Structures are given as C-alpha cells and as structure tokens.
Computed example of a mutant assay.
Amino acid sequence: MALLTPIRTRPRMDRRSTVWHIDWILVLGVVALSSIGALLIWSATHGRESLTEGNPNFFLLRHALNFAIGLILAVGAAVTDPRRLRLLTPVLYAAAIVGLILVLVPGVGAVINGSRSWIQLPWMSVQPSEFAKLAVIVGMALLIAEKGETDRNETARTIDIAQAVAIAAIPVVLVLLQPDLGTVMVLGSIVFGIIAVSGVPKRWMLGLVTAGVVITTLSIKLQILKEYQLKRFLNFANPEQDLQGSGYNVNQARIAIGNGGIFGQGLFHGSQTQNAFVPEQHTDFVFTVAGEELGLIGAGGIILLFALILFRGLRIAINARDAFGRLVATGVVCWFAFQAFENIGMTLGIMPVTGLPLPFVSYGGSSMFAGLLAIGLLQNIHLRSHTF
C-alpha cells in the first residue's frame, strides 16, 4: 500500500493570514479537553490538603500554567519552517535519548510510583519518555520520507523500514529499563501505525506483533518488569483476586464510575472522589472523576472530543503534501488513540493498569507539553497543505 494519498486534489489557496488557515476545530477540541480536565483535577484535589499543602487551587492553577506553556510550544511548532523542522529532528531525537539515559543514572533519575522515569528539577519534574514519543514519530518519519524522496520510491523499502525500527528500538529499550511498560506500549502503537502506512509488505506487520510478544515474554522471564507490574496483569486476568491490593485501584475506579449513572452526582459532589477513595485520581485515574461527577453524558463527551481530535488528525494525514507530514500525522494519531483507549480502558477494567495519563485531561507538565507540541506539528502540516 502506498503512503497515504489525498482523498481529493485541492486547489492551493492564496497565502493570507496564517490564522485563517488554522484547523480551529482541532484547536477547540484540545482546549475543551484541557478545560474539562482542569475542572476534574480541581474537583479531585481541592479538598486533599496532603496534596495541595493548604492551597485548594494549587493543581488547577498548575494545570492552567502547563497548558499556557504548552500552547506557546504548540504555536512555535506550528509556525516553524518545515525545512527547519527536519533539521531539528535529529536534535530532538538525541535530546530524548540523553534524557532517557539520565533517568537511569542513580542520583539523577527519581523513582515515582515504582518507576525511574523522572528527572527532578528545583521547580518541576520532567518525564523524558513523554518527549521520546514525539522523537520516535519525527525520527521514523524523517528517515522513511527522505529515503523515499532520494530514491524516488512511492513506498518504503525493507531496508528503510529496518532502519526506522532501529530508531524506535533504542528508546523502547531505555524506557523498558525504567521500567515503564505503558509508554513501551504507546511507542509500539506508534511504530505499528507509521509502518502500516509506509507501504511495506504485510509480513512486517506480523513481524512487529511477534516482536512485541517476544519482548513482553523476555521482560517477564528476565524479571525486567517489577512485581507490582506483573500483579497488575494478573489482576486484569482475574479482577476479583486481590481487591485490597493490586486490584484496589481498578475496583475503586469501577465503583466511582458506577456511582455516576447517566447524569452524575455533580461536580465536587462525587462520594468516591471527595472522600479520596481512588488513588492517583488527578493523574492516571482522572476519567473516574468524570464518570462519577458528570455521569455517562459527561464521560461520553470526553470520548467524543477525543474522536473529534483523532478525526481531524486523520484528515490532516490524508491531505498532507509530503510523506514526512503524512507519517508524522499518522504517528500522532496512533499515539493519542492508543493512550486514550488504554487510560479509559484501565479505569473500566477492560485494559490492564499501566500508569498512562489521559492526554490533555490528566495533570502533568511533561505530558501536556509533549501533547501540545504534537498538536503544533499537526497544525504545521495542515497549514502547509493549504498554502503555497
């Protein structure tokens, strides 16, 4: 299959105001998700003095600040010249690798929730694996696209795909050593999506699935995964086996969502949420706040907003003017799609608990910055497809 081709040929538009050509539907979808996330985070944290240190608005304000900084990063990515973006790709990839190595260094990397995934700075914590997702996307896209442009091939060759997989393999190994299985799964979905639209034979898809199974098996056999991570998978297979231990989070999450019914108990009035029964509710389990306090309608609205963002991302991929843009947009869509599905799925008990945040909704600076940078790249690709 050839790299995604436009569904129709559009006449190029005159270069007028850049603002006129922005995909505002995509922007509004992201702003809406972040705004809902701010309310959910506020509700989950305003009464927990152990988290807020006496300031009930602490996480609300930090979430808003993270979004503002991320918005600046998104604008920068959107207006950057495409040629400069290509030149910056190796720099971004190298920086991500350095960050992933640093978190493994004792005294530099900080252990949070059992995983050495953070670099603790005086004013904030940085999670390099979030930026590694972006680095893998642009790194693979650049290599495959430039090989195709150089050789004038419409589809990627086997050697090109092998090199692209090697680019992704280094971050995957480093993230697995933390260990952060959730991010490895996201990276796997990104690699699978990019290769799927690059035009290689189907045997590559089978090979990637096989490699995923082998990596998972070796991680268990070599005891790379920690005991609590293995228990999460065992609990996923048998949810009732340890409700007060490894299954506690999921059990409380189900109760919270079940309490919401159709219309919810009302913002700031959820019994599970306000009594802090659900751990990590402002980060990994923020969707349970929506389920309990906003009900099926509110939680369904979040899912629809994600569907809108993914739809706009796919349109941008289909109408991109070059292979690099199509592959980057495809990688971003695969990232958001899998991570949103995994996060929401683990709160409902249909996916194992992996500690992945819900993009734009969960509290977290690194996640917000990386996600909005990805949105900026989508806008950059969109703008190029509508101007000279």
Rank of each mutant, 00 (worst) to 15 (best):
G37H: 03
S35W: 02
E240M: 04
I190Q: 07
L218D: 05
T9H: 13
I375F: 14
Q120K: 15
V108G: 01
L102E: 02
Q178Y: 09
V75I: 12
G212M: 05
A44W: 14
G47F: 06
N235C: 11
L358A: 11
L348W: 07
V184Q: 03
I224V: 15
R157S: 13
Q127S: 01
P359H: 11
D81L: 09
L33H: 04
H46N: 11
E227N: 14
T387W: 08
E292W: 08
V27D: 11
G355M: 00
L85C: 00
I22G: 04
T354L: 06
A162N: 04
V286Y: 06
L243V: 14
A32L: 13
I257D: 14
L356S: 01
T273P: 01
V138D: 02
K202P: 01
A162H: 03
A38H: 02
A256P: 05
L73V: 06
I69Y: 06
R84V: 15
V200K: 00
L314V: 15
N343Q: 03
A374I: 05
Y93H: 09
Q252N: 07
I72Y: 03
D160R: 01
D151Q: 12
T150M: 14
G264I: 06
I97H: 02
F341S: 11
S271D: 09
L234K: 10
F287D: 02
A276M: 04
V289P: 04
T158M: 11
I97C: 13
T45C: 10
S115C: 06
G139Q: 03
L39T: 13
E149A: 14
T89Q: 09
L294G: 08
A110F: 13
E342I: 15
I297T: 12
K133F: 08
W204V: 06
W42G: 00
R116M: 03
S50E: 09
A323K: 11
Q379P: 00
R15I: 12
E53Q: 14
P106S: 02
K202F: 13
M140N: 11
N251I: 01
F192D: 07
L3R: 11
L51M: 12
G114S: 11
G345T: 06
G266P: 05
A96E: 04
V165F: 12
I262F: 13
A64P: 03
R326E: 00
N275H: 14
I41Y: 10
V79I: 15
I344S: 05
L358P: 08
S385E: 02
